[in-house]
Design a protein around this nucleic acid. Structure first.
Length: 1114
RNA sequence: GCCCGGAUGGCGGAAUUGGUAGACGCGCCAGACUCAAAAUCUGGUUCUCGCAAGGGAGUGCAGGUUCGAUUCCUGUUCCGGGCACCA
């Protein structure tokens, strides 16, 4: 009987399925253990061998714990919302729900073949309304909560309202809101009250910058933006402020930091998270600024440049200031001479993504022309703008101390800014020195003080004189929680008159409407904004009928017809007096904003427009008094509003007689900076649904809880279930989730804990990071056709070794041409040899048709539908050898290996063990199918301990010898310990060693083999179950109990000690196990080899480490 | 740029707390079985000098600490992951 893995694996997978072998109960007398894999996104490309790595590891551990007597929860599900499905829908017209469903089916099929012990009755899918009902529900709880810093926890917003009603906001003035009293609160309108509350909510609405691509009409992810243009199509991308939802994760910053002390994550992971949170202690310092634009002293007093610094001790070393390009004071600081340079620089920055800005090595910046005043010595300090200062961090402005900060130093050098040395000899003029231990110089009253000590002195001084204050700062920002996309959870929010009203919980789930088109909505809103019958509540929508206006069907303001353009040009010449006066006041950026006049927008040509601010200004003549014209104006305004423009209308009279007042109105509109919430102007008093959707991490922030109680209709997870399963005991996934998913889910857990829905505030007790499996790409080398060669349809490929020789110049052109002529007669005439210019291109070839490095030429000819059917090859040693490079595993590089193929060829058990055998699970490594044979051989060798091809069953009931027991218990010891510490690769080796040794001993005894099968069950469950049943066991091996290590079988009476002379291994001596130093000295010194090395030399030292080694120093 | 990893034979890797560098597997070489091949089995395999015995070198690179360093420290190079709208 031979090892027929296909039959065996199919048989037991079916058996385990039918017997519900993996179904887990929430009631068990056994201790619980929760093993979780990071939520997979079911991509259309299916599984490649990199995906199951973590799942196999977790499966081994889950099965191991089960054998150890635990009730183990090991679930699987799908993070099914996401961009790729939506992108696929846009490109192929397949609804994301459909493609996702298909992908999941495919995923499941692939997973099933590998023999995982998932309890599929607990499967979850984030895009299932029964699941996202609870994602929406948790969002509502976040929306209805605020963070009470006094109690250091989230509370219902009602407690905040109670505080406002009683005392106003004096005690809870967190987010730079204006102060108000209880009386004032009570007289506020509902809108005013709700606007204030919105600022406090844990999920709140604000404005944030996004990558906006006008041509695609959509917001792009950072990695969809390459060099300032969209990845798809290469269209320009700019920053644009859009209304966004935010998660107030910053309130949890400190708890997220402290919580790291109570979890078992790697130090690297903890470092990454705490660096991300970025807690720092420092000071905020106010610098007065000089500007001739200040009308009064009060103005000057009011508008200070606030910086955040962790080094207030260096205050006398400040040689310049740098503000972020988005800083609000730039306009004020910029002098007329510098205006042009500043504008140019800001335009440049606007085209760059945040990532590019941070990654840029090149130093860029521009001087504003303005100065700030050092509050300590009244020194005038030039203010610069540079992209390396980010608006979101600190105050968006820094005081630069070039002698102490490397980046400041480089900036000063680059722009020739003189450097003040405040650390004396510690600064060498060549590079900055960030020391805190130098004695201060050039620092007035701080001179001679240690920098460390000066920090406190400066901060006390700042606070004493009201020039600044101590401040704890976090690098972490609130997390953007909305996406302008279709394929995500809809927000259970209805806007009415600019107020966000939550849906009643009984109305959940708010289902995603089915759509046919996935294009972006107006004004950077999500595609849902196009679904009027869904978003407007109730219908009908007061839509403007375009035909009635004679409007062309022109959707975007940036797109207009040549005819319109000509008309606009004409109209510019025919301006009225009022228009001309206003134009003179608006032109040349006098308000800090660029206006255009007579510019086409949609179907209209408007009088004036500030495109960036989405502001239209119209100046109406007397004829606007007619009824007909009034109606037209009204409709025109409506359409402009619809596409996000604010419209201000003046009469000729107003401009001519009160220009200042008119300008003030325009200024006010500009200061809004962003267009008002489009949802507050649409729908005319009726409700409008929120049309953004939630981000990918919404559903994945709490999924581990749903697995505990996946079918509960009453709550996201019953307290009973979460009390029983509690934290995830082992969480396995990649480091790429270090600061995204892991921080969000930790925050949600803390939030749900604050509201007392669960009893623990850290989701994952222990985290294991799996490495990435990289692809090992193979290359072939193709000649580009020579101009002088005969025309041939045969592409010619050259083997890697020869290609390398050619590349290094060791293979001359004539030699190559000779080779070519050999393959294709008369390929190139000898006379033309000197004119030939050889070009060889390197092409990816499918790794699955390459055996190691040798190309399967026949398979290659059939590859890609016979694209290379008539290819010719220049071989080396009769073979075509491919080049190798390690790259990311991806379809486009033809280096993906499908687990299905390997499972078909070798079986799931072999595949599982091989994935583990490849190396430490935490480490990244390239995939190489080659070695899988060795593991397969091991399983066959194990099989032969039970069955002989000819003799049939060969195991026996004989008593085991002590030598055999030693082999077994050595294996138990090693495999148990290795599994416990996730060193699966060495455990697989230990199995091999054990089976090798048993084979050598010809041991086929049940007493030894049976425990070995249990050891093997987590790794290769199918073969273990088969052999287990063959040994006539009735129950499943899955529920056997793990063999117990008996130390007594391992005791040795002697030990072979390595002997080193001067630390270099020379020989070894066998000594009794309980040997003491004196005996050891004697035995070692009498050793022949030792004597050879020590003869004529004095022994200086004799080092004896019991059970380790001996070292003789001469 | 910043944060976090990694680097050991031809290849994947082992060496758990500073104590015999290269376990186990692949590949390669030789042999057995076979008409032959596959499969299987046996032996060898870091490099280098040497017939051998035996010696020398060796864990990315340059230093340091130590009786002893793949392991600890300093510096450095290269590769991988993350950097807030991929999930």
């Amino acid at each position: 009987m031979e090892y027929n893995f296909r039959t065996i694996e199919q048989k037991w997978q079916q058996y385990w399925g039918e017997t519900n072998a993996y179904k887990v109960s929430n009631n068990s007398p056994r201790p619980k253990y929760y093993v979780l894999d990071m939520f997979p996104y079911p991509s259309g490309a299916g599984l490649h061998v990199g995906h199951p790595l973590g799942y196999i590891a977790s499966d081994i551990f889950a099965r191991f714990k089960r054998l150890k007597g635990y009730n183990v929860l090991h679930p699987m599900g799908y993070d099914a919302f996401g961009l790729p499905a939506e992108q696929y829908a846009i490109e192929h017209g397949v609804h994301p729900a459909e493609s996702t469903k298909k992908n999941i089916e495919n995923f499941r099929k692939q997973l099933d073949k590998i023999g995982f012990s998932f309890d599929w009755s607990r499967e979850v899918n984030t895009s299932d309304p029964q699941y996202y009902k609870w994602t929406q529900w948790i969002f509502l709880q976040l929306f209805k909560s605020w963070y009470n810093r006094e109690n250091d926890k989230a509370e219902s917003i009602d407690t905040l309202v109670a505080i406002f009603e009683k005392d106003g906001n004096q005690s809870v003035n967190y987010y730079d809101a204006a102060l108000f009293s209880a009386d004032e609160w009570n007289t506020f309108s509902e809108k005013e009250q709700q606007d204030i509350l919105m600022q406090y909510r844990l999920c709140y609405c604000g404005y944030g910058e996004v990558n906006w691509c006008e041509a695609l009409g959509t917001v792009l992810a950072n990695d969809e933006v390459v060099n300032g243009v969209s990845e798809r199509g290469g269209y320009p991308v700019v920053k644009r402020k859009l209304r966004q939802w935010y998660l107030r994760i910053t309130e949890y910053a400190d708890r997220l930091l402290r919580g790291l002390d109570n979890v078992d994550f790697s130090d690297a992971m903890k470092d990454m998270q705490s660096n991300w949170i970025g807690k720092s202690y420092g000071a905020e310092i106010d610098f007065a600024i000089r500007s001739d634009k200040f009308a009064t002293i009060e103005d000057e007093q009011r508008r200070k440049l606030k910086v955040y610094t962790t080094r207030p001790d260096t205050i006398y070393g400040v040689d310049f200031m740098v503000v972020a390009p988005e800083h609000e004071l730039i306009d004020l600081l910029t002098t007329d001479e510098q205006r042009e340079a500043v504008d140019e620089y800001l335009a440049y920055v606007k085209s760059r993504s945040e990532r590019e800005r941070m990654a840029e090595k090149k130093i860029t910046g521009v001087f504003t022309g303005g100065y700030a005043i050092n509050p300590f010595n009244n020194r005038h300090i030039p203010v610069w703008i540079s992209e390396y200062v980010l608006a979101g961090y600190g105050t968006g402005a820094i005081m630069a101390v070039p002698c102490g900060d490397e980046r400041d130093f480089k900036f000063a050098k680059h722009f020739d800014i003189p450097i003040t040395n405040i650390i004396g000899e510690h600064f060498n003029g060549e590079e900055a020195n960030p020391t805190k231990d130098a004695m201060l110089t050039n620092s007035d009253f701080l001179d001679g003080m240690l920098m460390r000590d000066a920090m406190k002195v400066v901060m006390d001084d700042l606070e004493g004189y009201g020039k600044g204050k101590r401040k704890v700062n976090y690098k972490m920002r609130d997390a953007a929680f909305s996406r302008q996309r279709y394929w995500g959870e809809p927000f259970p929010i209805i806007w009415k008159d600019g107020i966000a009203y939550p849906l009643d919980e009984s109305e959940l789930p708010l289902e995603l409407p089915y759509v046919e088109k996935y294009g972006p909505g107006p004004e950077g809103e999500g595609p849902l904004a196009n679904v009027k019958e869904w978003s407007l509540i109730p219908s009908p929508s007061p839509q403007v009928e375009k035909g009635a206006l004679g409007a062309a069907n022109v959707p975007k303001y940036s797109v207009y017809t040549p005819a319109q353009y000509e008309l606009a040009k004409q109209m510019r010449k025919e301006h009225t007096e009022a228009e001309e006066i206003l134009w003179q006041a608006l032109r040349n950026n006098q308000l800090g904003v660029k206006f255009r006049r007579q510019h086409p927008i949609d179907a209209f040509i408007v009088d004036f427009v500030a495109l960036q601010n989405k502001l239209v200004v119209e100046v109406d003549g007397g004829y606007h008094e007619t009824e007909e014209q009034k109606l037209y104006d009204e409709n025109r305004t409506k359409v402009l509003n619809e596409i996000g423009f604010t419209v201000i209308r003046f009469t000729n009279e107003e401009i001519l007689h009160n220009l200042d007042a008119s300008l003030n109105i325009i200024k006010e509109a500009i200061n809004l900076e962003v267009a008002p919430n489009p949802l507050s102007t649409r729908g005319e008093g009726q409700g409008v649904r929120e049309t953004n959707t939630m981000p990918g991490y919404a559903g994945s922030s709490w999924y581990f809880l749903r697995y505990m109680d996946p079918h509960d209709d009453a709550i996201f997870c019953s307290r009973e279930a979460s009390d029983y399963w509690n934290q995830v005991d082992l969480y396995i996934g990649g480091t790429e989730h270090a600061v995204g998913h892991l921080l969000y889910s930790r925050m949600w857990t803390k939030f749900l804990y604050d509201l007392d829905y669960i009893g623990f505030d850290e989701p994952y007790r222990r985290l294991l990071n799996q490495g990435m499996i990289q692809g090992s790409s193979r290359f072939v080398y193709r000649f580009e056709p020579l101009e002088i060669s005969v025309n041939t349809s045969s592409p010619i490929f050259i083997s890697h070794g020869l290609y390398e020789q050619w590349k290094e110049g060791n293979l001359s052109t004539p030699t190559i041409l000779d080779l070519l002529n050999e393959i294709i007669p008369n390929y190139c005439n000898k006379e033309n040899y000197s004119k030939a210019k050889i070009l060889i291109s390197k092409l990816h070839v499918d790794v699955n048709i390459v055996d190691g490095v040798e190309l399967d030429i026949e398979a290659f000819k059939k590859w890609r539908n016979g694209e290379y059917a008539n290819a010719e090859f220049i071989l080396e040693d009769g073979k075509y050898i491919c080049g190798i490079e390690v790259e990311k595993m991806s379809k486009s590089k033809f280096n993906t290996v499908n687990p299905d193929d390997l499972v078909n060829k070798y079986g799931a058990d072999t595949f599982r063990m091989y994935e583990m055998f490849l190396g430490p699970v935490e480490q990244s490594k390239p995939w190489d199918t080659k070695g899988i044979e060795g593991v397969h051989r091991f399983l066959k060798k194990l099989w032969r301990l039970f069955f002989d091809e000819l003799k049939g069953k060969v195991w026996n009931e004989e008593k085991a010898t002590s030598q055999e027991l030693k082999v077994l218990h050595k294996a138990i010891q090693k495999i148990e310990a290795d599994t416990e510490r996730f060193s699966f690769n060495t455990a697989v080796s230990a199995f091999m060693v054990c089976v090798n040794e048993l084979s050598d001993l010809k041991c086929q005894k049940r007493e030894i083999l049976e425990p070995l099968l249990i050891l093997l069950t987590p790794y290769a469950p199918h073969i273990a179950e088969e052999l287990w049943k063959q040994l006539s066991n009735q129950s499943s091996v899955l529920d056997a109990s793990y063999p117990k290590l008996e130390e007594k079988y391992l005791i040795e009476s002697t030990k072979e000690y390595p002997v080193s002379i001067n630390g270099k291994m020379r020989t070894s001596v066998v000594l009794p196990a309980d040997v003491e130093q004196e005996q050891a000295v004697e035995a070692v010194m009498n050793n022949e080899v030792v004597q050879k090395w020590t003869v004529g030399k004095q022994v200086k030292k004799f080092i004896f480490v019991k059970n380790k080694m001996v070292n003789v120093v001469v």
